[in-house]
Computed example of a mutant assay.
Amino acid sequence: MSEPTPVFDDLREESEELDHLVAELTEERWALATPAPRWSIAHQIAHLHWTDRAALLAVTDEDGFGEVVQKALKSPDSFVDEAAEEGARLAPAELLSRWREGRAALDRALRAAPQGARFPWFGPPMSAASMATGRLMETWAHGQDVADALGVVRAPTDRLRHVVRIGVRARDFAFGVRGLPVPAEEFRVEVRAPSGALWTYGPEDAPQRVTGPALDFCLLVTQRAHRADLALHAEGSDADRWLDIAQAFAGPPGTGRKAKEEPA
């Protein structure tokens, strides 16, 4: 079995926090629009449920996951929206129940995964811990969309360290997916955690640097806020360019979010 790792507990806690946001919503509020175009709160939860199910198949049924990949390849530009739309048509109580059951099953499967095992995914194969980290990132990001739709300001937690780590490691992908030259040198990233700790990545003397709050970095790399609305600072032209294109998720470049309008 996998060694105990905090990311499994952190994923569970992140999911439970989002669950608390939606558990008592009326049917009308499940239909509220979120910042993602054409996606309601129900679409957001349906997407998380679908992706949890895909992750569960990847861990427990490689052939079943392969069938999911083949379906996705047949409609690469629409399969995410189609899956969310299918789930959003369920009654809210049914969707909530399925999401809870699916994420509980995934939690059990990840904790039971053999030490050192790697599982297929839409990108490179991943360990159980990496799979959980990716699920946490998505849960947090889509939870932000739900919170924004409800007008709720969530208190950030140090669970964000997992999102920061993915964002830092995805730097080269963000350049490559846009056909841009990948910087040869590592960047220095220093972000302040919600607890006040300083999380650092890369050489201390690197000339290309990014600094700021961890929450803002996570909002940037999940494309939940525009760079202009965040307190992130870049030193060096490559680091500055990265803040314009950063993404922590696989797939084509996202459209991101528009900057907030300046007050009149």
Rank of each mutant, 00 (worst) to 15 (best):
Ala58Ile: 03
Phe79Leu: 01
Thr34Leu: 07
Leu219Asn: 03
Asp229Arg: 05
Phe217Val: 05
Thr255Pro: 00
Leu25Lys: 02
Ala112Val: 03
Arg98Pro: 06
Glu262Met: 12
Glu82Phe: 00
Gly151Phe: 08
Val163Thr: 11
Pro35Gln: 10
Glu235Trp: 11
Asp77Trp: 10
Arg89Gln: 14
Ala88Ile: 08
Asp158Lys: 10
Ala58Val: 03
Thr139Gln: 12
Ser40Thr: 13
Arg89Thr: 10
Arg118Ser: 05
Asp9Ala: 14
Trp121Cys: 01
Arg154Leu: 13
Ser2Val: 14
Asp229Met: 12
Asp10Pro: 02
Ala246Cys: 12
Trp140Ile: 01
Met137Tyr: 02
Ala83Val: 00
Ala193Leu: 09
Ala109Lys: 00
Arg209Val: 15
Ala23Tyr: 01
Asp240Ile: 00
Ile45Asn: 01
Val59Ile: 09
Leu150Cys: 05
Asp63Arg: 14
Ala72Phe: 07
Ala36Arg: 06
Arg89Ala: 14
Leu136Phe: 07
Arg241Ala: 11
Glu13Gln: 15
Val210Tyr: 04
Ala46Cys: 05
Ile45Trp: 01
Arg161Ser: 02
Ala54His: 02
Trp121Met: 08
Gln223Ile: 11
Pro37Gly: 06
Gly134Glu: 01
Glu14Met: 10
Ser15Trp: 02
Ile45Gly: 03
Gly123Ile: 05
Ala193Cys: 07
Ala246Gly: 10
Pro253Trp: 10
Val152Phe: 03
Ser2Gly: 00
Asp81Tyr: 07
Ala31Cys: 07
Ala105Pro: 01
Glu62Phe: 06
Ala54Arg: 02
Phe249Lys: 01
Val221Glu: 05
Leu48Cys: 04
Ala46Asn: 01
Glu24Arg: 12
Asp216Ser: 13
Glu185Leu: 10
Val152Lys: 08
Gly123Leu: 13
Phe175Ile: 09
His20Thr: 15
Glu16Gln: 15
Gly196Phe: 12
His43Ala: 08
Phe217Cys: 09
His162Val: 08
Arg192Cys: 06
Leu90Asn: 06
Ala228Asp: 15
Asp145Thr: 09
Arg227Ala: 06
Asp77Cys: 00
Gly202His: 08
Arg209Lys: 14
Ala109Leu: 01
Ser15Leu: 00
Asp229Ala: 10
Phe173Val: 06
